[in-house]
Design a protein around this nucleic acid. Sequence first.
RNA 1: GUCCCCAUCGUCUAGCCCGGUCUAGGACAACGGCCUUUCGAGCCGUCAACACGGGUUCAAAUCCCGUUGGGGACGCCA
Length: 477
Amino acid sequence: MVRVRFAPSPTGYLHLGNARTALFNWLFARHEKGAFILRIEDTDAARSGEEYAAAMTEDLKWLGLNWDEGPDVGGSVGPYRQSERTPIYRKYADALLSRGLAYPCYCTPQELEGRRQEALAKGLPPRYDNRCRDLSEKDRRRFQDEGRSSSLRFKVRSGTVSFRDLVRGEVQFDLGLVGDFVIVKSEGTPTFHFAVCVDDGLMGITHVVRGEDHLSNTPRHIVLFEALGFKAPEFAHLSMIGGEGGGLLSKRDEAPSVRSYRARGILAEALVNYLALLGWSPKDNREILTGQDLVSQFSLAGLTKSRAALDHKKLEYVSGQHIRALEPQGLARRIAAHYRLNPDTPWLVELVRAVKDHLVTLTDVEPYLKIVQRETMDFGSCARETQELIRREEARKVLEAFKTSVARSGGPGGVDFHSIRQDLAQSTGLNGKALLLPVRAALTRESSGPELNLIVPLLGKERILKRVEEALQFGKS
RNA sequence: GUCCCCAUCGUCUAGCCCGGUCUAGGACAACGGCCUUUCGAGCCGUCAACACGGGUUCAAAUCCCGUUGGGGACGCCA
């Protein structure tokens, strides 16, 4: 059975790169009817934060990427938080040490850094020179007596390592170019390379789907899997994603977080859909896909090798498509949740019905929400052109006529804009813009927006009359 | 510097493995038109790409070599 994992380190909010990696793992697991595991890689105590771990799980849940095993739900091969697995790493490290596959290194970080800079300056590969590999007992004791602490390094065997990457094909590395690397830091915690291999081995991970930045780490991991006695999993290295400018999506320019999109009102299913399209494409030309569609169509074979750049315009397009696919009731519920409105607000569904086609994100509803919610129009603070429009003599005539028509109309069915409009056209002899723009301005303070025949019933007779009156008052001043 | 990965419209991509069907397809954007009281949406249309140079071949976006460009790794970060 396929077992995959998403293993973020909680050093910040879940960003788009993380989310995409999580998504592809999830899609693969769901398509293969396998297991999706969440593992928190918090071995770097200084940089990791519990609040970030919590935020990440929340964001993953929001995206709909549910996991079968993880810190909160448990599972048979836990714990799923690396900070809780220290004894396990200790045990495996001791085993490597006693088998002569690892050795203590007494070099200080300053010494290592110095040598690295030196090598770089000479144009040499800045790798560790394995100098502590063959230390005599005497040397070791001497370093210990000097009070030096030691880290544990893995003895990298010679030869080459090759593997078949599921997206890149055959890849080969010369291990002679890889220095012995640290697997346990001097403070006693495992490094990323070590923890990952121990965990993936113990957790029965069958496929490692991760970013391409790990491609050249893979030979290290493969030799570690060998030494640890685990069968190495399959690997699939995802291409990276770039920023909008074409540059890289780095931590530096703070890769946009999933929650920033959520706050902007992007639908979770739209973000998932968009992210899936970044580096993967379905067999047919359809691009607007539900989570179900994605799961059923997903295949690692559809993954792209080259880097993809973010395109917010396209994200918005996808978002708009998903919003439009929602029933008014459903969309109203989402909007109510986003703005913490009472979901039973009676006019909300009607409003949504009226403006649905105008929305690309949930927050786009805000100006329309205001149209309904505004208590007083306060024309003094709205756009200059709207103010001028309302002051115009012609407009005032239209509004007077409108007032009369509205006042006359009504009944059990509410205000019917069609008949009012006919009425109005007759009494003023106007039509089109000249007739409707003043009405729109008085009712919404805007010169554009959703169709009036949708807005008018929404506002109701009382509020319409009040607003028209306000507009007329303002026009006088 | 060394090693590894990548290279099709501005952007996401199909095609490449198994050369001819590719005067390179789709989508977003841009631009134009239709519809519309307006914006948007919708519909229709236009513009737009095989990084470069060598091979191989009757034929290359597709295979091979090189160049250039971009990215990654070489950390007691992950």
